[in-house]
């Protein structure tokens, strides 16, 4: 009989999360729809804490909320930012440097010309683009304590291509502090997971097929990772039969023409994954894969090209499941 109690305990453990519970909370923030799913003791409390954290970060990072430091910075050229925004700015500028400008957090004045922030889409004239584009000089930005100066009239920053990745990292930290060991954070399609699923298996994250909503390029089995996708297929407008998508090439001020449909980055750091998904989309296939070969020890890449080719780097080859024919890219291909 003595053996019964440990055996029952084992049964409970093997049943997974049944002794603790799962809670899912959804809300709108950062111009998107977010869902946080948590398994653990008192998961509702942890989700509420995470939600409050998002709302605070949203206010700190927003370029159009008049209360945010970023808004004031863009309006006046100088402002005190929240510590989170200062940290994010320095991460953004670092990604600008390591991607040789393919990721650029200071393009807002050009993005506004195309009408992407307020959805009043239009094709700006070449002169308009040139005059806004010549002010895009992130090197000039200075940070002292929490006061940021742009030092260049007409330059505006925005964190749209990195804020959700950073936020997911901070949410995972918040949940860990609450003692949570199993969670999924989905910030409008930017996904991060903590640990494995409540039943002990890996989380399964599908990568959307840009050609057909509701179908998928692949499914990835992950734990303690972020999966972040960028593509021109989510936000775009058409004018005179031509498609203009929202990812601008920072070098030209025009939508990036990189012959890629989507770029997915899988890695431990959501901030880095978010910035790189945009940067590698801008770079195009060859440059992107070379960047991965030279820097990609802590991330992997899934590229989908305009002519339907699917390329995955070797680190994800054993966690991917796909109905497509895909090519595994090896680091040794680039030596």
């Amino acid at each position: 009989m003595k053996r019964i109690i440990p055996l029952l305990l084992l049964v409970i453990i093997l049943c997974g999360c049944s002794v603790t519970s799962t809670y899912s909370g959804s809300f709108f923030a950062m111009d998107t729809y977010m869902t946080i799913t948590v398994c653990g003791n008192n998961p509702e409390k942890a989700v509420k804490k995470a939600e409050a954290r998002v709302k605070k970060l949203d206010e700190a990072f927003s370029a159009h909320n008049k209360k945010s430091g970023v808004y004031k910075l863009n309006k006046n050229g100088s402002a005190e930012l929240e510590p989170d925004a200062v940290e994010l700015l320095s991460l953004a500028l670092n990604n600008y440097r390591i991607t040789d400008g393919a990721f650029n957090p200071a393009m807002l004045s050009v993005t506004e010309l195309w009408g992407f922030p307020d959805k009043n889409y239009k094709v700006p004239s070449e002169n308009e683009i040139k005059s806004a584009h010549k002010n895009v000089k992130p090197e000039k930005i200075t940070v002292k304590n929490n006061t940021v100066k742009l030092n260049n009239k007409g330059m505006k920053i925005d964190f749209g291509a990195i804020a959700k990745g950073y936020t997911s990292d901070k949410l995972i930290d918040t949940l860990k502090k609450e003692g949570i060991k199993s969670a999924l954070v989905n910030l409008g399609g930017n996904v991060a997971v903590l640990g494995g699923k409540p039943d002990g298996s890996d989380w399964a994250v599908a990568v959307e097929n840009p050609d057909k909503k509701g179908s998928y390029l692949a499914t990835l089995k992950i734990r303690d990772k972020s999966v972040i996708t960028s593509g021109g297929y989510e936000r775009y407008f058409k004018k005179n039969g031509k498609v203009y998508h929202h990812i601008l090439n920072p070098k030209t001020g025009h939508p990036a023409e990189s012959s890629l449909k989507s770029v997915t980055i899988v890695g431990k750091n959501g901030t880095y994954c978010d910035a790189l998904s945009t940067a590698l989309f801008v770079m195009g296939k060859e440059k992107a894969l070379r960047f991965w070969a030279e820097n990609g020890l802590d991330f992997d890449v899934i590229l989908y090209t305009e002519n339907g080719g699917l390329f995955v780097t070797e680190g994800v080859s054993d966690i991917i499941n796909s109905d497509f024919d895909y090519k595994v890219v090896k680091r040794s291909d680039y030596e």
Binding site: A204, V205, A206, V207, E234
Partner: peptide, 8 residues
């Protein structure tokens, strides 16, 4: 479903 979330 076959998966827990969709990256897009």
């Amino acid at each position: 479903g076959d998966f827990d979330a969709v990256a897009r």
